[in-house]
């Protein structure tokens, strides 16, 4: 049996930054595993561990060579092997919209034929939050978005996932989803493990298969999206807050005065 988990390397922006052309100046970007995917990787590995059968966990990444460092972290945490999609056409794509990503991942699903696919709810750079569900519909899988509880026992054997979907306002929806399915995984669903030294060592010898569009039976039209980023800017600060200056002690003293005026701490 097989679990496919999507892994994205995302750019995180430092507190102070500049925008150059249509993106944040790379000098202010740091790359890391997408936070949601960290939980999806953990859920994928746990699904495999919970099964009596032989389960392979495969990760799929759309990303340049740089992202292999991030992929290795997933391999170190228990993913068995990885697929990384990239070539000149993907690199040249102006904006990888949801439909483009789905075309690439759809080809990976066709090749790997997994029983279940886990993705993060969203990526914290572009934040579309849609790839998992769109992928499910494209490959004819069932799905569940924003899963914050997954009973890993028996999912693969029974072909049903018992999940909670995290609705707004502290309400979970309890849902049964027939496999094959795509689940989009919410942060906090589990406690992602740290990679062990042994895991990190083993990860070095695990396979990261690089796939070009033509390897997947696609061409450049697969990444020709209909969405175009035309502007990026810092939102105007709308703050009309009263700021307290000085060193920490002075700031605290001024804030304490303001809080007392509001009746805080008066007993």
């Amino acid at each position: 049996m097989k679990v496919l988990v999507t892994v994205k390397e995302v750019a995180e922006v430092e507190d102070d930054f500049e925008i150059a052309d249509l993106d944040v100046d790379p000098r202010y970007l740091e790359y890391d595993l997408n936070e949601w995917d960290e939980y999806a990787v953990e859920a994928a590995v746990r699904l495999a561990e919970a099964s009596d059968e032989d389960v392979e966990v495969v990760s799929a990444t759309i990303g340049p060579e740089r992202s292999e460092e991030t992929v290795r972290m997933a391999l170190a945490k228990g993913v068995d092997r990885a697929v990384r999609i990239w070539d000149d056409d993907v690199e040249a794509a102006e904006f990888l919209d949801v439909a483009s990503k789905v075309r690439l991942l759809e080809a990976v699903v066709a090749e790997e034929d997994p029983d279940i696919v886990l993705t993060g709810v969203q990526a914290n750079d572009t934040g579309f939050g849609a790839t998992g569900v769109a992928l499910a519909d494209a490959v004819g899988f069932e799905w569940g978005a924003v899963v914050n509880h997954l009973d890993t026992e028996g999912v693969l054997e029974d072909g049903v996932a018992h999940v909670h979907r995290e609705l707004e306002g502290g309400i979970d929806e309890i849902t049964e989803i027939d496999l094959p399915a795509v689940l989009t995984i919410q942060t906090g669903i589990n406690e992602p493990r740290y990679a062990s030294l042994r895991g990190i060592r083993q990860a070095q010898s695990k396979e990261i298969a690089r796939k070009t569009l033509s390897d997947l039976g696609l061409d450049h039209s697969a990444v020709a999206g209909e969405l175009f980023l035309t502007d990026m800017y810092e939102p105007e600060a709308e703050s009309d807050a009263t700021y307290f200056d000085g060193d920490a002690g002075e700031q605290a003293a001024q804030l304490a005065t303001a809080l007392r005026e509001k009746g805080v701490g008066a007993e």
């Binding site: 919209d97 949801v98 439909a99 789905v102 934040g127 579309f128 939050g129 849609a130 790839t131 998992g132 569900v133 769109a134 499910a136 519909d137 494209a138 799905w143 569940g144 978005a145 924003v146 979907r165 995290e166 609705l167 707004e168 999206g225 209909e226 969405l227």
Partner: peptide, 24 residues
């Protein structure tokens, strides 16, 4: 809506109708 439930069907609707999707 770009709600938890909205994101549970809108991407599939866009895919099925072969329409571009812009979220949030």
């Amino acid at each position: 809506p770009n709600s938890v439930n909205g994101l549970d069907y809108a991407p599939a609707v866009a895919n099925r109708l072969a329409l571009p999707l812009v979220t949030d």
